[in-house]
Amino acid sequence: MDTIIIDGLSFALPLFIMAIGGIYSERSGITNLAIEGLQGFGAFIGALAVILISNFAKTDLESLFYLAIAFAMIGGMVFSILHAVLCIKFKANQVISGVVINILSVALTSFLTSQINKNAFGAASDKFQLGVSKRFTIGGLSRIPVIGAVFKGIYPFEIVIIIIAFFAWYVLYKTRYGLRLRACGDNPHSVDAAGVEVSRIRFTAVMVSGALSGLGGMCFAYSISANFSPNIYMGYGYLAIAALIFGNWKILPALGACLIFGFAKSGGYRIVQLMKLPSAYSDLIMILPYVLTLLLLIFFSKTNRAPRALGEIYDKGKR
């Protein structure tokens, strides 16, 4: 039972932070299918930065974990500018732009990873080895039966995510910026009439989603895969989108959806282990979150309501 909770949380939280990013972007009115590409690109930049630094400064990779996160967020944010420019400045179709960015991200990071490995380190590899970040346990709390597992085997990034998520919630619902951002997704004309620049709000919202996606991607790289490689494009970005759709574009319900995904996945693995099935069966378990996504979408998409102005190209002149 403990492993289900521990592994479930460490999968659900990075998903959650990416979903929050998606909520920022979509509540401001910009459809963001680019999360998948943004998380990969962010993780690539984060991994590249720490690999280079550790090589020069001869430091241990694990101690650079927070640096990696910072770089990943910057990387995701910079790459998301592409999406923002395409959607806001160039008025491109937002779905197309998202897909374009995903494809470009996969291509660019795979190419650059192997090219850098070859040129800088003289190794033919498509990976940046990172290792798994150290876990810790909160002594007293972890002894509570069942729920105690929440406080066992915590990755440091889980704490980072919880802090950032709380902050993101506060900004979105309590501050002036959040009020304006959510108004942009419902009726951008009202924001414009109030003397606030719609495109600036949307631009920053997309950049926030880029940064948070980068964070999520880096967390996956430091936990599940223990490296950066093109295998980071597992479709988790799309899972985050699915989560925010069930969450009705709200932060707390999206957390619920992410937890369901997380526990479905860790629970599935546990079942394979308990039933002593051959390891090939874990491939079948891998499909659980995806199947669950489809099933949940079937039940929830009709009742959920997307932001009114989502995906519409905003043209000031149009009334």
Partner: peptide, 30 residues
């Protein structure tokens, strides 16, 4: 009309000129 449909009347009126307060002297909120 340039109104945000899912906002309250008060939220619509203050949009763009929101009165701010600070929680614990640090965190600004509307």
């Amino acid at each position: 009309f340039k109104l945000v449909q899912n906002y309250t009347i008060a939220e619509n009126i203050i949009l763009g000129v929101e009165p701010m307060k600070k929680l614990a002297g640090i965190f600004p909120y509307v």
